[in-house]
Write a protein that binds this DNA or RNA. Structure first.
Length: 371
RNA sequence: GCUGGAAUCGUCUAGUGGCAAUGACAAGAGACUGUAAAUCUCUCGCCUUCGGGCUUCGUAGGUUCGAGUCCUACUUCCAGCA
């Protein structure tokens, strides 16, 4: 079983350590989104230097390219991309939601590859096989995230997710038994149910009864209604296993709320995507560095930020790099935004340990959202 | 000096009788949450009660119901010849 030690609690919130074969993750923690085995625009050295504890890659994307056999041959995901710390893989379930041309059956999903248009299938079993080949420390169960948000469709998707979870567990155990490193890869169940508390409760209860190492909470999109939903789910989920809030963390309030209601890890593409598009975090809110007003601003993005970008460069320079569409614009912006969220969750962890979570939350959010 | 050709929004450009006028870039702003995203959207002559109104295609005239488009002159630029 995946070892998870809780060090300190404050209501539903907790700080702890997830012990993985590739090292420890101090929680709560922000996990970098490295969909195609890279955090876009950043090297693993830069990710390491900015304080990232772990990365999350995507099974769907890696199955398509470069293929799981190649990653296995390379010695696994961590070795392949030169990341010596813990790794997660998402199952590909999210792509049922995010990609067009998907056909869902009880057996699995037929995707139309965005690379060459050919149809290929993913099932709970094939996702588990692919994730074992990729060899991340923590795997997600293959779940169904419904495109519709009606109660009826959510319920159907949730039940399917539960039936698929049974198959994921069976396949995961079979694969574990056939691998010499059987205690080195772990499985999280994914809780679904959309915005409906009754479904979330049912899903959390179902997942709780299953022999898994932790939980992903999926299908969350906005902070609206997140409080109640997370409270409901995390009160049901067993305390002694880690919980990952899938895909949330673009807005600082998501991270505070997630931690407050018992989530341990987060991943989100928002920080790096926004960085590439010129939207940069500051403690006074996000700014668009491309705006004309920054052309002559020779101060750093944040004078009290310790990232490589803020330590060395001015807003005027960043503005210039974006205006001239230089690659370095995206690199420096990504360093800053990724540092910002990683560091924010680190600070939240420190505040919990010092029993000052509420004060820190109030102070940060009032400044950030100017309220 | 002669002979051709050309002048359209900050730039380049489409346009050969119905046009406030094409496209690109630039510019101004916005969006982005388990990444088909170094992507996408909006604005880009002036005014507007959003119905429309007004002024525009080097300048000045003319033909025509109607001219960026045809005619005349002028101005400037380019090419060739002197």
């Amino acid at each position: 079983m995946l070892k998870f030690d809780i060090i300190h609690r404050d209501g539903l919130a907790r700080t702890g350590i997830i012990h993985t074969p590739h090292g420890d993750i101090k929680t709560p923690a922000f996990i970098g989104a490295a969909t195609r085995a890279t955090v876009k625009a950043l090297t693993m050295k830069q990710m390491n230097e900015l304080g990232s504890q772990a990365i999350l890659a995507n099974t769907y994307h890696l199955v398509l390219r470069p293929g799981t056999e190649l990653i296995e041959k390379a010695g696994g995901l961590a070795q392949f991309c030169s990341w010596c710390k813990p790794t997660f893989t998402d199952s590909g379930g999210f792509q049922i939601f995010s990609l067009p041309d998907v056909k869902i059956t009880e057996d699995g999903v037929k995707f139309k590859s965005y690379l060459d248009g050919c149809i290929f299938e993913m099932t709970p079993e094939s996702s588990m096989q692919a994730q074992w080949a990729i060899g991340a420390d923590i795997h997600m169960a293959f779940d169904h995230l419904a495109k519709s948000d009606s109660h009826e469709d959510m319920e159907i998707a949730m039940h399917r997710t539960h039936r698929w979870l049974d198959r994921c567990i069976e396949e995961h155990q079979r694969l574990a038994a056939s691998h010499s490193n059987q205690d080195e890869q772990f499985l999280y169940a994914v809780v679904q149910g959309g915005i409906f508390t009754d479904l979330r409760a049912e899903s959390a209860k179902y997942c709780t009864t299953q022999p898994v190492d932790g939980f992903g909470i999926g299908g969350v999109f906005t902070a609206k209604g997140m409080d109640e939903m997370l409270k409901t789910v995390n009160k049901i989920l067993p305390e002694d296993k880690p919980r990952h809030l899938l895909g949330m963390g673009q807005e600082p309030i998501d991270l505070f709320m997630g931690v407050e209601h018992g989530c341990d890890t987060f991943d989100c593409v928002g920080p790096t995507r926004m960085a590439r598009n010129g939207s940069l975090y500051t403690k006074d809110g996000r700014i668009n560095i491309k705006n004309a007003k920054y052309a002559h601003d020779f101060t750093p993005l944040e004078s009290d930020c310790d990232c490589e970008c803020c330590k060395n460069y001015t807003k005027a320079y960043l503005h210039h790099l974006f205006r001239t569409d230089e690659i370095t614009a995206k690199v420096l912006a990504s360093i800053h935004n990724e540092y910002f969220v990683v560091h924010l969750v680190d600070m939240i962890r420190e505040s919990l340990l010092a029993d000052k979570f509420e004060e820190y939350k109030e102070e940060f959010l009032s400044k950030y959202y100017n309220c």
